[in-house]
Write a protein that binds this DNA or RNA. Structure first.
Length: 381
DNA sequence: CATACGTGGAC
DNA sequence: TGTCCAAGTAT
């Protein structure tokens, strides 16, 4: 009885906060034109187009709103509905995702669009979770957001909020199960769309990872973590192990007509399907010039002359740390073969923007473009 | 079930 | 400056 009252009270307080301070301007919540006009038989009263919501939910996985927002806007222009996305080339899809990270999300989005293109939108948890890239949280989020169906969510925001309210202090597996049932118990079954959004907004704006604003929090009196005086301790973190820095030698190879050699990474694993400049790991006691020469021969079966350094940069992929040392190279002999990649290609430096590159390579491209423009200034035709 | 999977932002 | 963290999923 007391618990029920507390839940009712919590919902009421949350909605009061949300009405004043929630994020009511997220564009995918107002982008229902396509759904209403072209699928009017599908759309029931008060429902939103699942497509823009689905795209947003995938982009939001481990990614903050302000980072993905511009990507979402460009995406909706390039691929306005699931049919266009399904028929787009993977290269174009990866290009639209370039810089967002976790590129398997783009592959899976493309594959899921193909499965969905000629069918009505799924309206069950199982239907959504059967699609690649969609787990329980994303499925629940789409179902509540688009159709106002009462499915709970457990994303980072909700997990953090619940962990602090309860000061939950047990191993991770128990925590997940408990929080899922708690999220379901709390869910307002009359207003699931608003409630889930309010929960996430609260986590993102008040119960934040750093500097939560407990002073103005309506749940301060019932928050166990706050009463323990250690809000930041929750949720409990896993200790992460550090990786040593690896040095990678990279070759920007130019041939006699000024084209540059790039390769497309394998379609599995890290940065799958993205393009890059060839290179590899420096071995113990090896000169970086030797690394580049060796890697180029091993991966492409060509000989190059390693010239001056173009740029050097640090880059981290999560826990992995790299130092990229990039040298300009002159092609000497051999027809490049894709021995460690899907394909290799000589391209004009001006057309590099047509290929999806990971973030670190974008900086290399920038350095190359600057170098080439200087060359032209110093050696006018 | 622990780990792979990117990048940019905050402090 | 290094460390932690973000609207998670798949294996």
């Amino acid at each position: 009885m007391k618990v029920l009252f507390l839940i009712e009270e919590l919902r009421k307080q949350l909605f009061t906060w949300w009405d004043c301070f929630g994020r009511h301007d997220l564009p995918w919540k107002y982008y229902s034109v396509d759904f209403i006009t072209s699928n009017s038989k599908e759309a029931l009263d008060g429902e939103l187009d699942p497509y823009p919501i689905w795209i947003a939910e995938i982009m939001l996985q481990q990614t903050q709103v302000r980072v993905m927002l511009s990507y979402w806007e460009r995406w909706m222009k390039a691929f306005p509905n699931k049919k266009v996305l399904a028929e787009a080339r993977l290269d174009q899809v990866l290009l639209a995702w370039q810089g967002l990270g976790y590129y398997t999300r783009a592959h899976r989005l493309h594959a899921a669009a193909f499965k969905l293109k000629d069918s009505p939108w799924p309206r069950t948890l199982e239907g959504w979770m059967a699609l690649p890239g969609i787990g329980r949280t994303t499925a629940g989020s789409i179902l509540s957001s688009a159709f106002n169906y009462p499915f709970p969510i457990l994303d980072g925001n909700v997990r953090r909020l619940l962990a602090r309210l309860t000061a939950f202090d047990e191993p991770q597996v128990n925590m997940e199960n408990y929080f899922w049932s708690l999220s379901n118990d709390l869910l307002d079954k009359e207003r699931p769309r608003d409630f889930n959004q309010a929960l996430m907004d609260f986590g993102a704006l008040v119960c934040t990872p750093f500097n939560p604003t407990c002073q103005s929090c309506p749940f301060q009196k019932v928050c166990s973590a706050y009463s323990l005086g250690n809000v930041r301790r929750f949720p409990l973190k896993n200790k992460s192990k550090l990786f040593p820095v690896k040095v990678i030698g990279i070759a920007v190879i130019l041939n006699q007509v000024g084209d540059v050699l790039i390769d497309q990474r394998l379609d599995k694993g890290l940065l799958a399907g993205m393009w890059e400049f060839p290179g590899g790991k420096q071995e113990e006691g090896e000169l970086i010039e030797k690394t580049i020469e060796r890697e180029v021969f091993e991966e492409l079966a060509i000989h190059v002359e390693v010239k001056e350094r173009l740029i050097e940069l640090e880059h981290k992929y999560g826990q992995k740390q790299f130092r990229f040392i990039v040298h300009l190279c002159k092609w000497l002999s051999g027809d490049p073969k894709p021995l460690a990649s899907q394909q290799v290609r000589w391209v004009s430096p001006n057309s590099l923007h047509e290929y999806p590159f990971p973030a670190a390579n974008s900086k290399i491209i920038q350095a190359l473009v600057e170098y080439l423009s200087l060359e032209i200034d110093h050696n006018p035709p």
